[in-house]
Each structure stands twice: as C-alpha cells, then as structure tokens.
Design a protein around this nucleic acid. Structure first.
Lengths: 196, 196
DNA sequence: CACCTCCTCTAACGTTCGTTAGAATCTAAC
DNA sequence: GTTAGATTCTAACGAACGTTAGAGGAGGTG
C-alpha cells in the first residue's frame, strides 16, 4: 500500500518532467517510465491510459499554483493592504513556477496543445485562478491604489503572462529567487500604478 | 516554376498553422498536407525531412517578429524619443504575434520543445532579437526616461514574456488590436518608469 | 504533336509507440 | 512458511507515422 503509492508519485513526477520539456505529443511512456525507474506497462496499473496520466499532471500543475497563491494570501495578516496582497501573490506564483514545480511548468507550456476535452477542463481551472487575480486587482482599484484607466482584464493577463514565462529566462544560477521576485514586484506594481 | 513556389509557401504556412496548435512532436505530416491540399510525400520535394520543414517554420517565425520590429523602428523619424521607440516596438511586436503570424506563434510556443540542435540555432536568433530590446531600454535609461533601479535583463524579459503570451488571451472579437496595443504600452511604460 | 522537365501522386516498407495478456515477483497476514 | 492479493515484469500485437520508390500527370518548348 505504501510502496505502491510512492511508485505512483514517482511516475507522476516523471511524467511532469518529460511533459514540461517535450510537450504533450512528445511525451513517450517509455521515457516517463525510464525516469521513474519502472517499465512502461506499469503505468497502466495506476492510470487507464497515457492521456489520463498526462491530464493528471496538468491538473496537479494548475492546482499547485492556485493553491499556493491562495494559501500565501490567507497567511497574510487580516489588515494587509491591497498592494501588499498583490506583492504576495506575485511572490507565491513565482515561487511555484520557478522553484518547485515541473507540474506547473507542464501545465503552462502545454496549455495550447491539449486535446480538446482536456483543454476544456483546463480552462475551467484557469478561469478560477484568474478570478483570484481579478479580485486582487479590483480590490486595489477600489482602494484607489491602482490605476482604473486601463482595461483590467488585459492588464491582468499581461502580468500573468510575464509571470508564467519567467521560467523561460530565469534559473537559480543567475542569482537568488528573492531578487527576481523583488524586481517583478516593482515592475508590476508600477505597471498597474495610478497615473500621477 | 511559379506554381511550385506557391505550393511550397502553402505547405510552409500549413506547417506553421499545425505547429502552433499541436506542438513540435504533435505536428504530423499528414495533417500539414491536408491543410495544404497536397499529399504528404509532396513535402519531400521541397524539404529533405519533416524536421527541416518545421525548423524553417521556426526560423521564419522568429525573423518575422524581429524584422517587423526593426522595420517599424527605422520608419520612425530620426528625432523620436526613447520612450516613443519603445512604444513602437511594443506595437510592432504585438502586431506580428496577434495579427499576422502562425509562424511567430509556432516559434514562441515551441521554443522549449525543440530538438537540441534546432533549439541552439533558435537561441542565437532569440539573443539577436533580445539585443534590439536591450538597446531600446539602455537608450531610455541613458536618456533618464526609464528607471535604472531594477535589473534590466529581468525587466526586459518580463516585458517580452507579457508580449509573447498575448495571443493566449486576446482575440480580435474582443475589440480592436489598437486597444490592446495601447493598454500594453501604458502598462509597460509605467512598469519601467522612473520612480517618482 | 512529341518530348522533356518539373511536380505530385499512389503504394508500400520499417519503425516507433500505446496498449494488452499473462507470467513472475513481492508483500503482508496467518 | 504458506497463501492470497497486490504490484511489476516480459512478450507481443496493432495502429500510426515518416519516409522511399517509382509511376503518372502538367506545362511549356521544339
């Protein structure tokens, strides 16, 4: 019972690794199995098909970011200001995509390549996460701390796009994670700032 | 002579379309051929392998963005200010990725999935294009119009990331291209603006 | 009309890969 | 230590796909 649960995790993690690097169609069960130190058919003991395995990777990746951001926000003191909350969300999002997770990366990089049915499920989760950010921005605008003179959706998407592509150009050898986070917070806060 | 050149274009455009939607490994010659209204083996009259066809799509996509941005900058009057030039570059980049080109989209979405040798060639082009932006930002900083207090590379990459992911959330039905361009220019200019 | 070159097709081969079947091994409880 | 169930393996099938071979058509030139 215990051991098998660990094997399952190993296969899932291996799938995330390959999926984030090779793309949906390029992810071969043999490669996943090799990374997981297992034979390919072992996958079928836990999943009914390759598609289901990969779909789970995407789901987990999506939830990882969402959950970590929400948890980070909830950890803030109740009186935290709207801008402070946005800063925290930026940090949390970057922490997941830069530090933690082949899963998040697999979800981001493959969003446009998913088979139609899985893509639809993914879009639901994406909208739920977008709602978190919509709330953050709306609150900040209502509090008069952010600009109200640009299309909020476009601005939000620009920010999320910038965050999601950070893994394409940043790696730990270039300096501490905290530095990218700080830079990103500055740029985003100014980008959304009120015209003065 | 004429007709065959048109067939070649058609196949290349079809490959760009499929590649941007299905990913590197998911792009099947049969699908490309169907879109190009041709049989799969016709590809081999113009390219020596599937890989070469797809590699050309990526190259063309990369050059399309680069060339259009450079051309737009050159079209500006000589006395144009640094911020004005950045605005123009933003507009030009968005025009290509949003309006014109499956090629650009194919290059962007598949960058992380390219086979090693092709990936290397792609990185060269990417650096050349990044140099254009580095110049733009450096000039603006030197002119005192942009902030010098954040890591320039990170800031530049955040901006390019935001631009490159615009196709994931924008489509023409949501409103005129000019609106997204204007919003993006505002957000980016403020994001890079001097602290006041 | 005949011929030659360019272009595209049909047919087929060989490989790769997801998947299935069924045997082997491992784990844990008596 | 035996047994039952859970887990993983080896072997093999069948479909999909890139690629090659060679035939056939299209278009222009003598």
């Amino acid at each position: 019972m215990r051991k098998s649960a660990r094997t399952r995790e190993r296969i899932l993690a291996a799938a995330a690794q390959i999926l984030s690097r090779k793309g949906w169609a390029g992810t071969r069960l043999v490669d996943v199995a090799e990374v997981a130190a297992v034979q390919a058919p072992a996958v079928y003991y836990y999943w009914s098909s390759r598609e289901e395995l990969l779909a789970e990777v995407v789901t987990v990746g999506q939830r990882a970011t969402h959950a970590h951001v929400v948890a980070s926000l909830e950890a803030l003191p109740a009186g935290a200001g709207a801008l402070e909350r946005i800063d925290r969300a930026i940090a949390a999002h970057l922490e997941v995509v830069l530090d933690r997770s082949d899963f998040a990366l697999a979800a981001i990089r493959n969003a446009a390549q998913l088979p139609a049915d899985i893509r639809e499920r993914q879009l639901v989760g994406q909208r739920e996460y977008a709602d978190v950010w919509r709330g953050l921005v709306e609150d900040a605008v209502a509090a008069g701390e952010l600009t109200a003179d640009v299309d909020a959706r476009a601005a939000r998407m620009l920010v999320l796009g910038a965050l999601n592509t950070a893994p394409e150009w940043w790696n730990p050898e270039r300096g501490p994670l905290a530095d990218v986070v700080a830079t990103t917070q500055h740029v985003v806060r100014r980008g959304l700032a009120r015209r003065r």
